[in-house]
């Protein structure tokens, strides 16, 4: 389209990146970050946040996002210019980051169904954290893909509810951020 505004860019390869964002844990910081993503039209696939250094009131936010190389570069720069943000690390550029997500999965069933659900969960190495005569809650930890697979299987075995934490991630090896 010809216009004084630039044309929409040609489709470019999109990649998933996991960003670790170190922030001052002050009111509104999460709104600033999520607002930046929505305001500028970027994706958030997963977001987790928790205070990691209590003394210094610092939180670590782990964001999984996807975009073209240019978009990822912009996302990092836009995050960095937020005043309470200390640093942004793209874990994906350090090689494969170690990523884990925890899911709680409730299944309901009786008799054989119930036994089958338990067997499957055990095969996946999930922990049973709650049980009643007609239900289980399993705790499962793994990569996003593993969690997806587990949930898919459980869907066949009486799944009624899922809660997922989102990703926690570190770079592998002895190096710290």
């Amino acid at each position: 389209m010809k216009s004084h505004y630039s044309d929409a860019p040609q489709a470019q390869p999109v990649a998933r990146h996991t960003l670790a964002v170190l922030v001052d844990n002050e009111p509104g910081v999460l709104a600033r970050i999520s607002g930046m993503f929505s305001g500028r039209g970027y994706n958030i696939e997963s977001l987790t946040v928790s205070e990691t250094e209590h003394e210094q009131h610092r939180s670590r936010i782990t964001i999984v996002t996807s975009g073209t190389a240019g978009v990822i570069e912009q996302i990092k720069a836009q995050l960095e210019r937020l005043v309470p943000v200390h640093r942004v690390d793209d874990l994906t550029t350090h090689g494969e980051a170690l990523e884990r997500e925890l899911a709680l999965v409730k299944v309901v069933g009786r008799g054989d169904h119930r036994v089958e659900a338990l067997r499957l969960a055990q095969a996946f190495g999930a922990r049973t954290v709650d049980a009643t005569l007609n239900s289980f809650i399993f705790e499962y930890t793994g990569t996003i893909d593993e969690v997806e697979r587990f949930i898919k299987v459980m869907a066949e075995a009486g799944l009624v509810e899922v809660a997922r934490t989102g990703i926690a991630a570190l770079i592998r090896g002895s190096e710290g951020l």
């Binding site: 010809k2 216009s3 004084h4 630039s6 044309d7 570069e73 912009q74 720069a77 960095e80 210019r81």
Partner: peptide, 29 residues
């Protein structure tokens, strides 16, 4: 965008130096 006009035809033969205090301005457009 009021400066560049059509981006694909913006200064097509140039190499560009960009001084800016805001890293997010670099390579944005």
């Amino acid at each position: 965008d009021r400066i560049t006009g059509r981006l694909d035809a913006f200064a097509p033969h140039s190499r560009k130096i960009h001084i800016d205090i805001d890293p997010s301005s670099i390579n944005k457009n």
